[in-house]
Design a protein around this nucleic acid. Structure first.
Lengths: 130, 130
DNA sequence: CAAATTGTATTAGTATAGTAATACAGTAAT
DNA sequence: ATTACTGTATTACTATACTAATACAATTTG
């Protein structure tokens, strides 16, 4: 379910976080689904359970999962945690960074918008047509 | 020209990099323009010249500026450093991350696309209409 | 209740990041 | 050539990140 790459340099727990984010965003993991126990995933990946726990803590602080100590860890409901203003503010920061990157890579705005739609379809994150 | 925030936690040199990236992307700094000498900017910001130098090194490795030791540091030509495949590969990674974030924040695809155009106009990075 | 399974806290070791002090080396201008 | 500027390299200190070993606490299950 999860794969880590020791070569790549990015911290193990970050790799785990990122992959679960994708799995949740694409719907491979749905609300209520249980994540593997920290010890199970740790043994699969040959790492320390605490490293998995750290990843889970990060996902929980993002509101994507919740943990019940003694019971397990589950995918949270996709409730809107923030106000509209805050949602826009959070995403705008990331959009601005992307726009800057795109500009430096010589992408035009329409090329960027097109790429986003291509990737959305490829990742199967959004089913809507635009 | 540059401002740093000691509270915010993000490393000083990263803050410097980010701000120069914006200045270049928005055209406030154009090809050939000289960046302030490391000592000058360091004194303005009350930090060590080496910290500024580190920021400049990062910008140079991104191809945005070039330095001539003994002379100064200048904004590079906006030449395309990469092949089309590579440009798309690099940007796709960042797009994927943004799409995942947008999904978790309950943005629809069209809302995301709209926000991008709004921000592009606001930042004045792209002048084209879509 | 007892046993097994869950996540958590504590502690520690190692590596790396971040910043700085200082000395070095190359360029430009007079 | 000398002086005054450039960026660079070396070294070192400090804090934090990352991972792990181990013990703890809470829930579930029989």
């Amino acid at each position: 379910m999860i794969r880590i790459n020791s070569q790549e340099g990015t911290p193990i727990y970050i790799q785990i976080v990122r992959q679960f984010k994708y799995l949740i965003a694409t719907g491979s993991l749905k609300s209520g689904d249980e994540l593997p126990p920290v010890r199970v995933l740790a043994q699969q990946l040959l790492i320390n359970p605490n490293t998995v726990a750290k990843a889970y803590r990060e996902l929980e602080s993002d509101g994507l999962i919740y943990t019940r100590p003694g019971a397990g860890t589950y995918v949270a409901e996709p409730r809107t945690l923030f106000s509209d203003e805050e949602r826009i503010r959070i995403l705008s920061e990331k959009v601005d960074v992307l726009l800057t990157e795109a500009k430096h890579l010589n992408f035009s705005l329409s090329e960027l918008l097109h790429l986003i739609q291509v990737r959305a379809k490829f990742l199967n994150i959004y089913t809507e047509e635009v």
